[in-house]
Amino acid sequence: MSRRGGGCLTAAAVALSLVVLALAAGLVCLVLTNGAPTAEVGAPLEEELVPKAFDEYAWGELSEVAAMISSAPSDEEGRAIAEKYGVSVGSVRPLALDDGRTCSLTVVGIRADERADGSGVSGLTLMASPISVRAMNEEETNAGGWESSDLRSWLAAEGMGLLPGELAEAIVPVRKLTNNVGVTSDAASVTETDDSLWLFSASEVCGTVTWFTDEYGVEPNAHTGYVDFAPYDALLNLEGEQYEYFSAAGVSASSDPQGALRLTYGGSETSWWYRTAYPFTYVGGDECYFYQVMASGYPSTTGLATSASGVTVGFCL
């Protein structure tokens, strides 16, 4: 006597077995992938950036490292990320320019500059040794300071064009403080500009500056026409804090013990511009000077705005 329904029971048992096998396979997969969802078939896998020597990173990779440093919740954690990826203050590499020349690129600060868009700090601040030799202005004046200078305009266009395209695209504009009047002792003359490529200020390189009071004293006297020179030093010191690279090298307003400021262009030592305007005039009509680093590396001298000097630029990633 046949039993009706036996085939149905067999099919049900087979189906149940398949379900159990599927669940077991899923559990094994879950364990093997640590609970992470599996990628779609054919989808590319994102690889974590592998730490390298500073001079081995492609520009896009270095930008990625800088972004991770920038997004860290604290300076300490940002520095830890930089260390993990082999980047430190003083790291240096060659930088090939579009005109066929090669300059050096040095890390001078980590999380040291404010982004121009207000989104926080940049990851890395870099210094490119002279990328050109140019005058600050076509006319013999420092009126308008850095903000109105011809060299600032040149850097934003032709100067940027000297950099590798991938590097130029990765640059993060930042806010820079400068006396943008020229001859003045008024602290209100120090205002912000948003810059992608910029010159370093005297205080960013030298730290605290006392050039006027060192030369003329702290009290007005007959020799100087009863001028109080302290406000001029105060003005210079409002243009930003000294970068760690220069501080670590012992650079001061009167000393460069390790030769950090001795830079070359075309194989020859050259003076190079600060963006800092000389703020005092003795007889009127001579408002035409900007501060420079001497070719020997001495931190302070002045040059006529129309004279040619090295263009040492800073920028941020």
Rank of each mutant, 00 (worst) to 15 (best):
P130C: 01
E140G: 00
T141V: 04
N142S: 15
N142D: 11
A143M: 12
A143K: 15
G145D: 05
G145L: 05
W146A: 10
W146M: 09
E147D: 14
S148N: 15
L151Y: 05
S153Q: 14
L155M: 14
A156K: 12
A156D: 15
A156T: 11
E158L: 06
E158H: 03
G159A: 07
L163E: 07
G165I: 02
G165T: 12
L167A: 04
A168P: 11
E169Q: 13
E169A: 08
A170I: 00
I171G: 07
I171M: 08
V172H: 02
P173C: 10
V174H: 10
V174A: 09
V174T: 13
K176E: 07
K176G: 08
T178F: 06
N179P: 03
N180P: 07
V181Q: 14
G182E: 15
V183Q: 15
T184L: 07
D186R: 11
A187V: 01
A187K: 14
A188K: 15
A188E: 13
A188Y: 00
A188D: 11
S189C: 03
T193N: 13
T193G: 12
L197Y: 09
F200V: 09
S201Y: 01
A202D: 01
T208Q: 14
V209P: 10
T210C: 10
T210E: 12
W211V: 03
F212N: 09
E219T: 08
E219I: 00
E219W: 05
N221V: 02
H223A: 08
T224P: 01
T224Y: 02
V227K: 12
D228R: 05
A230C: 05
P231M: 09
P231L: 06
Y232M: 09
D233N: 11
N237I: 01
L238K: 13
E239N: 12
E241T: 12
E241Y: 02
E244W: 07
F246C: 08
F246P: 03
A248G: 00
S252C: 02
S255C: 02
S255T: 08
D256I: 00
D256F: 00
Q258A: 15
G259H: 09
A260H: 04
L261P: 00
L261S: 03
T264K: 14
G266R: 11
